[in-house]
Structure formats: C-alpha cells, structure tokens
C-alpha cells in the first residue's frame, strides 16, 4: 500500500461519498451469492473525519471456492491481490483520484460480521497501514425495503493490544469491534444532480414512458419515491426464519467452543495435582490452549444478531397492528 500517513488523531466519523458507496453496492450486488471485498481510497481530514472518496474491488480469484454462507477470506489471495491493488492505485492516481488507502470493504451476509477472518484482516490493516483504517460492511441481502444496510467498524485499542501480545485472555465481546458512525456526503456537482433527480427532472421524456410500459422497467424518479413504500411490506416470515436458523447455528458453534474450553480447563485441573509449579495463566497462554477469541467473537455475533432480530420484530409488530387498524376501519 502506497502512502502511509501518520495519524494525528483518532477518527470519530467516516464520511463516505456517493460514488464510493455506489461502487461498493454495485460490486457486492453483482457478485452475489459470493461475498466479495475491495479497497477504500480517501483522505483523513482534520476534525477526526475520515473521507472515503473512491473504492475498487479486489480480484475475485476465489469466486468458485467460497460458498454463500462462508464470508470470503481475503488473506488467501493476498499475494495476487497486493499487486493488483498497487497497479490499480497507480492507474487511479493518473486521473487524480485520492491515492491513499484508508481501509477496505466487504459484503456481509445477513449481518454476520464478527468472524475471525474479518478480525485478522482488520488487524493487519490497523497495524500495517494506519491505526485509523476502517472496514465498511455492506449487506446486500438486507438492503431491501428502502433500508440501506451499511456499517463501519474498526478494532478497539484494547483488542489490538491483546492480539499483538498474543494473549489468550478474556475481553468483553462488546469491546472487540467498535462501530464508527458513517455519513453520506457528496460534492456540489453531485448534489446538483441529486436535486434534479429528486425534482424528477430526469424522467419526463414522453417516448421513454412508452418504452417503459413495454419493457416494464423501473425509472430512477419513480423508484426513489417507491422506496418509502417498500417499508410497508408485510412479509416478515422468510427473514425471521433465516434469522432463527442462523442464530441456532451460532449457538451450536458457541456450545462447541465452550465444550473445548471446558475440556481444557478440566485437563488443567487434573494436571495441577501432578505439577504444582505451572500456574493456570501460563497454561492458558500456551499454544495448544483453545483460542478464547473464537468464542468471544461468536458471543459478539449472537448479541448483535439478537439486537437485529429485536429491531426487526418490533418493526413487524408495528406493521401488524397498523394493518389490523386499517382493516377494522373498512
């Protein structure tokens, strides 16, 4: 990665430009069902703001291998990807794009983000590139019904310290990742265009309307209005089913991890009677001890999942009451 800028202050907000967002969205959607990743370009500006102005995808060398559920592991194609990145950034510099890598993005499947591959990847970004590197997660599956599912995360200092010292210690699962608020910004010209779109300037030509009718296509003007009505969609069951399914999976995984821990703890306990000298702390630090980070990540994932479900169900309940109210009036 080309320029490493020494961070003056810790960033507190991420401003993403429409162009970068659209590029991420396009890449993630077109590669479905594969989960993909890419690089973010931008600048750190004063006031603790990280501006993301451009994004480009990583080459999809492992497209065939990754299944839908498995969040792709970018570390694998790293060697190939690194050259690609440098080449890409060199090209983009020629056309005056911000030539500074500020992080990476990845597509997320139904809110799954707390995985060890993401952790390792983000760790390498935050230690090698810049402490202010972030990962932007975009969920192509959840981005429906007028809602944009975009999240920005980074590792906490506590977590980085833990990983760097290779400690196998406990950390509050809530404090592994921290979310950075994301804000959409746009340069003046793009704002002008958006204003036109909002006013419906770009969808007035009459011969196109005929064409639309024949081909049954969406125009931008009409569909921007439509997104607000998509929220009224009543079908919640497929989502809930999927969510419960995943939750079951995570709980099972957690149980397996806990069992490993328990087994190891019991073994330690037995050994303690034989060898009095070694302390428990050393034993947990040894390389064959089960990694505690695994279970902590799963815990974190389950928590965020539950929150997501709660939010979803409360919306669903609102809608159900709304529907019954409307029907009774008739």
């Amino acid at each position: 990665m080309a320029a490493v800028i020494e961070a003056s202050e810790r960033i507190s907000q991420v401003h993403i430009e429409g162009l970068a967002l659209m590029k991420i969205v396009k890449h993630c959607h077109e590669s479905l069902p594969h989960m993909v990743s890419g690089s973010l370009l931008g600048l750190e500006v004063s006031g603790g703001i990280l501006e993301v102005t451009h994004a480009f995808p990583f080459p999809d060398s492992r497209a065939a291998a990754g299944s839908a559920a498995a969040v792709s592991d970018t570390m694998e194609g790293d060697q190939d990807g690194h050259e690609y990145q440098i080449e890409m950034m060199r090209m983009l510099r020629e056309v005056n794009v911000d030539n500074n890598c500020v992080g990476w993005y990845q597509s997320m499947y139904l809110g799954i983000y707390s995985t060890s591959s993401l952790l390792e990847n983000q760790l390498s970004y935050q230690t090698d590139l810049s402490p202010n590197a972030v990962v932007i997660l975009y969920d192509p599956m959840q981005t429906t019904h007028g809602k944009l599912a975009l999240k920005c995360y980074r590792l906490t200092e506590e977590c980085i310290r833990l990983k760097e010292n290779e400690e196998n210690a406990f950390i509050d699962p809530r404090k592994i990742f921290e979310e950075v608020p994301v804000k959409l910004t746009n340069p003046g010209l793009v704002k002008a265009l958006l204003m036109d779109v909002a006013d419906g300037v770009h969808d007035d030509s009459s011969n196109l309307q005929l064409f639309e009718k024949e081909h049954n296509t969406n125009r931008l003007g009409s569909s921007t209005v439509k997104t607000t009505f998509d929220r009224l969609d009543l079908s919640t069951n497929p989502y809930l089913e999927k969510h419960l399914e995943f939750l079951c999976g995570w709980v099972d995984d957690l149980a397996v991890e806990q069992q490993k821990m328990q087994f190891y703890a019991r073994q330690l306990h037995r050994d303690k009677h034989r060898r009095k000298d070694s302390s428990a702390g050393d034993a947990w630090a040894s390389s064959d001890a089960p990694r505690r980070m695994e279970s902590l990540l799963i815990t974190n994932q389950i928590r965020s999942y539950c929150e997501q479900m709660n939010q979803f169900t409360s919306e669903g309940i609102e809608k159900v009451y709304l529907m019954s109210g409307m029907q009774k009036k008739d």
Partner: peptide, 22 residues
Amino acid sequence: LPLSLRSNEPEAICVSEMIKSM
C-alpha cells in the same frame, strides 16, 4: 439518442438515502 436514468433497487435505495442525507 433517447436517454434515461435507470437504477436497480439497491441503487435507488442509495440515491434516495443520499437525497435524504442532503
């Protein structure tokens, strides 16, 4: 040539999101 803007669902969501944030 006749020209028109066209966006698929995620793009439309992004655009409306951008208009909103503006």
